[in-house]
Design a protein around this nucleic acid. Structure first.
Lengths: 231, 231
DNA sequence: TACTGTGAAGCTATTCACAGCG
DNA sequence: CGCTGTGAATAGCTTCACAGTA
């Protein structure tokens, strides 16, 4: 059966955000040779409740079989298509400090659906180096390189102070998807998507809950008054 | 005025997740010498709407002045306290590949409220190296080190295959806050918080929207049929 | 029978719009 | 007056519970 390739109605954001988890779980199952899976099993593998999984999948269409479950390969393929991973999106990474370097290495190998086509940095020490098989270019050539190589998604791993300027330049040459690792808010025009990944935000959210737990259960406080850290 | 130090009623998760943004914006304002800020201005700086900001802050108590706005220092201090950043939480990082290395370097310097007290890896090549001023120890000593150094939060930056085992060991010695960078779901008992940061999930969400935009506006498709990438 | 897909209910979060106060 | 804090309205998400079906 060939899946319906229409643009399809809107899928809720919360659902879209979970599709990658389902896809990963399906690939694991596929690697283990599992052919069919129930909503209960797949939900467990993805760390959600089965009702939520079924509701999510229902937004893609009817890909399950009542009384049986979902075909692993077919569902994986459908989610892959829906997420737009049937092609390889050209990605640029700006800022090749520790983090940018790690991101380049990770993306250079591990990820289907994306291809790193440009690495950019400001530092003359770094320009010309080869990382994950790609030569780091000067950020001065951003506009030319983005256009020539058809960059669709940019990953910003610069210091916060440079992030907005770099972002503006990407947007000016037509990039509409931005993944921001710099600890700052980016303003972009209508039609451009920004997603943010921020280590310290995540830690702070954990700290909030940790503090609540410590207050509720004073037995298990940290062992001693903690050292002060330089600012 | 000394702020009320009671444990306080529950703050919605969505609000907690935004407090770090507000705090960052407030620190920026403070650095620029701004003493007072309206909800409209602070909301703009944090990238949200003012009604949402006011609703969020109202969960902390009444720290604003009608007709005037919020005191920058006072509000920053209140959020710091509420997030549990008045102390330095001891953090351990496991897995010092590219990513773990970058995280250690970042946390070693940039972040108030946290102190890296342990770096752990399995690889004999890496053990004994010094990163951000801390000697990498063997993951074999995890239990002893976590206990001795009072680790409250662990950051998992190992390959996916090891993540669950490492996580179980942390949980077994009392760690209740986990930040997971490995691309897999972690199961933990009740009372343990896990937050996940995942580059490829974020990219896939962007790809979904990028595909929608490309379908809606075929002018701006990627320039050519893309190269296939090795699996 | 054993499961999916979904109406309906319940819950959480966002937004509006303005009363109330400095 | 100008702004905060919040009741009320709205929108969105999750969960329940079961009708429907292979």
């Amino acid at each position: 059966v060939i899946a319906d390739p229409t643009p399809r109605q809107d899928i809720p954001d919360a659902t879209v955000a979970r599709l990658p988890q389902y896809l990963r779980a399906l690939r694991d199952l596929s690697d283990r040779g599992v052919a069919s899976v129930s909503s209960e099993e797949l939900a467990a593998a993805a760390g959600v409740r089965s009702a939520k999984l079924r509701r999510d999948l229902s937004h893609l269409g009817s890909y399950g079989v009542r009384g049986v479950g979902y075909g692993v390969e077919m569902l994986a393929q459908e989610i892959t298509r829906e997420l737009g991973l049937s092609q390889n999106w050209p990605v640029a990474i700006v800022g090749l400090g520790n983090l940018g370097h790690a991101l380049a290495a990770y993306l250079g190998l591990a990820t289907r659906g994306f291809q790193v086509v440009a690495l950019l940095d400001r530092d003359a020490e770094v320009i010309g180096q080869q990382i994950a098989g790609i030569v780091v270019a000067s950020v001065d050539d951003l506009e030319r390189i983005v256009t020539e190589r058809g960059v669709a998604i940019c990953v910003i791993a610069t210091p916060a102070a440079s992030a907005q300027k770099v972002c503006d330049r990407f947007v000016a040459v037509g990039v509409r998807s931005v993944l921001n690792f710099a600890p700052c808010v980016l303003s972009v025009p209508e039609g451009v998507d920004v997603r943010k990944v921020d280590l310290s935000t995540e830690l702070q959210i954990l700290a909030f809950h940790e503090q609540r737990k410590a207050l509720a259960d004073p037995e298990s406080l940290p062992l001693e008054p903690l050292l002060e850290v330089a600012p």
